[in-house]
């Protein structure tokens, strides 16, 4: 790691306590994400959880096609890059031949809820013991801001220039609610990372999801993170987070959708 203190004249640097540092599981690579994007926050939370649960050497992640296609560049764990929409099928292949490893997918809305809907639903329906992390930012960021299956009604994108029109483009899909109906879903939650409090809640959700897998509870643990896309939405990072808190969560309310029954 580059020594950022080089050349800085400061007597008390050596005597200060380290209160915040990069988890070793997060590689020291400049991220390609736009400033203010939720992806980098969720990456960090995910890798903190992997670090804290001490599963770095037994975890295999699956990266999708979309903005997080390069997720493996930032994660010091084994990873496979899947074809568009097929991440959960790839994860199924991995988990079934190596059942003692910890397997997760990290997917966007286009990947998980459009082109890969069949794989998503059937992976959950088989009750695969994996974690699915779903970044719902309501837009195709990587390809330049086209409509996603989760784009809200009225939202302007590069393929809905007059705003999403339900009669033409259909309804924004609530895939987390759909899969929560399946017996193969063990834990389904929807969170965000728009504030410090929300970040802490998302981390807790990820901890729970990975712990479920480690404890072999049986079934998919699904963590949706309602995320921003300042570049795609043409907003500042702050304004995009406010948009989530004030508007998006009315359609995609935060909180647990399915929790394991006690006992």
């Amino acid at each position: 790691m580059k020594d950022f203190t080089e050349g800085i004249q400061c007597d008390y640097l050596d005597t200060m306590d380290m209160v915040w540092e990069r988890p070793p599981t997060l590689l020291d690579t400049p991220m390609h994400y736009c400033p203010g994007c939720s992806h980098s926050v969720v990456h960090r939370l995910l890798l903190e959880v992997i670090q804290e649960l001490d599963i770095q050497d037994k975890t295999i992640g699956v990266a999708p096609v979309g903005c997080s296609v390069f997720a493996y560049n930032y994660m010091d764990i084994d990873m496979q890059q899947a074809a568009h929409g097929r991440a959960t099928a790839v994860a199924t292949g991995i988990k079934r031949v190596l059942p003692d490893r910890i397997v997760f997918t990290y997917q966007g809305d286009g990947d998980l809820a459009a082109i890969g809907t069949a794989e998503t639903i059937h992976t959950v329906n088989r009750g695969e013991n994996i974690v699915i992390i779903f970044i719902n930012n309501g837009i195709y960021g990587m390809t330049g801001g086209q409509m996603a299956p989760t784009t809200l009604e009225g939202s302007v994108t590069s393929t809905t220039s007059e705003g999403r029109n339900i009669s033409l483009h259909g309804f924004p899909i609530k895939i987390a609610d759909m899969i929560a109906l399946l017996p193969g879903a063990y834990y389904v939650t929807r969170q965000s990372v728009t504030s410090a409090k929300a970040v802490r809640k998302t981390k807790k959700a990820l901890q729970k999801a990975f712990t479920n897998q480690i404890e072999n509870k049986g079934g998919v643990s699904f963590v949706e993170v309602v995320s921003n896309c300042p570049s795609g939405w043409k907003m500042t990072p702050l304004a995009s987070n406010e948009w989530i808190d004030e508007t998006i969560i009315k359609y995609y309310p935060l909180g647990d959708i399915k929790v394991p029954e006690k006992g």
């Binding site: 097929r86 099928a89 199924t92």
Partner: peptide, 8 residues
Amino acid sequence: NMVYGAAG
């Protein structure tokens, strides 16, 4: 794609 994952 399951083949891909397992072969990997």
